[in-house]
Amino acid sequence: MTAAAAAMDRMYRRQRHIYDASRKFYLLGRDAAIDALKPPAGGSVLEIGCGTGRNLVRIASTYPQARCFGLDVSAAMLDTAARSVSRAGSSARIRLACADATDFDPLALFGRPAFDRIVISYALSMIPPWEAVLAESAGYLAPGGELHVVDFGGQEGLPGPFRAVLNRWLAAFSVTPRMTLADAMAGIAASQGFVCTVRQRYRGYSVHGVLSRRAGLD
């Protein structure tokens, strides 16, 4: 077990049981990002940092023709995810794997080198080498594919006192908003010939960025 896996297991061994009930109040914008995925019929969707499986279950329900995949570094969270997937009756359509977002091989894990849609939801803010993860994830997009990232935003429109309290509270959970996320996504788009769109939500509380790979790119 890697240090990252051990740390996440320690953090979520108990939290995972109340994670979905508590996080719905402040992990804003997840469902809007899912609604924007719109994978092609029979397309593939990978979630990096799938946690409890909450998003994957919703994706499978929203897009019944999609093939869904999820990976997470925490075995404890994946145990909860497997239970959630089973309760939803989606075990045949959702495959899970234990892997580190900073170093994984989708071909070895899932038998697929690329995906039509990739989702990273509130995970980059907990991964120190987040820029490298972002760039590597974009490399696993199939032609015409899209990488959707939703996470804490730059908070530009929020009152100063609220921002200070929010960031102190997030730090207690090893969460660091990536203030340069939009710039990082734009840089990847420029270097790889992708299209980048970034939308701030809730006065900058959250951000939804999309990297789109043109269908003609090999």
Rank of each mutant, 00 (worst) to 15 (best):
G209I: 07
D20E: 13
A186E: 14
G70L: 11
L78C: 10
A215C: 05
A215R: 05
A171P: 03
G216N: 05
R112W: 13
V198T: 10
R83V: 14
L134E: 10
G204F: 00
Y140E: 03
S206H: 05
F115T: 03
I188P: 04
R95E: 07
G145I: 00
S174P: 02
A76I: 05
G153A: 01
F115C: 03
H148T: 02
E156S: 07
L56N: 09
L56F: 10
S191C: 12
S212A: 13
G139F: 03
I34C: 06
R16C: 05
H17Y: 15
Y140W: 15
T2E: 10
G53I: 09
R168V: 04
S22Q: 15
D100M: 11
D151K: 06
G29N: 09
G51C: 09
L28Q: 02
G139K: 06
M185E: 06
V57C: 13
P143N: 06
A41L: 15
G187D: 06
I188A: 04
L141K: 06
Y19A: 11
P39L: 06
L56V: 01
S86Q: 14
S191R: 15
S84N: 15
I48Y: 01
R203T: 06
G187L: 05
V165A: 15
E146F: 11
T176D: 11
I34W: 00
R112E: 15
V198A: 09
R54F: 11
F194Q: 01
D9Q: 08
G51I: 02
R93W: 02
S212H: 11
A123Y: 02
I59A: 01
C98V: 07
Q65A: 11
P40L: 10
I127Q: 05
Y122D: 10
L134R: 03
V133W: 03
I94C: 08
F173I: 07
D100T: 13
M11S: 12
L27T: 07
E131W: 12
Y122G: 00
W130I: 07
L27M: 14
L124E: 08
S212N: 04
D79A: 14
S74F: 09
D218C: 13
C50R: 08
S22T: 14
C98T: 15
L211R: 00
A171Q: 07
R178N: 07
I188S: 12
S137L: 09
I120T: 00
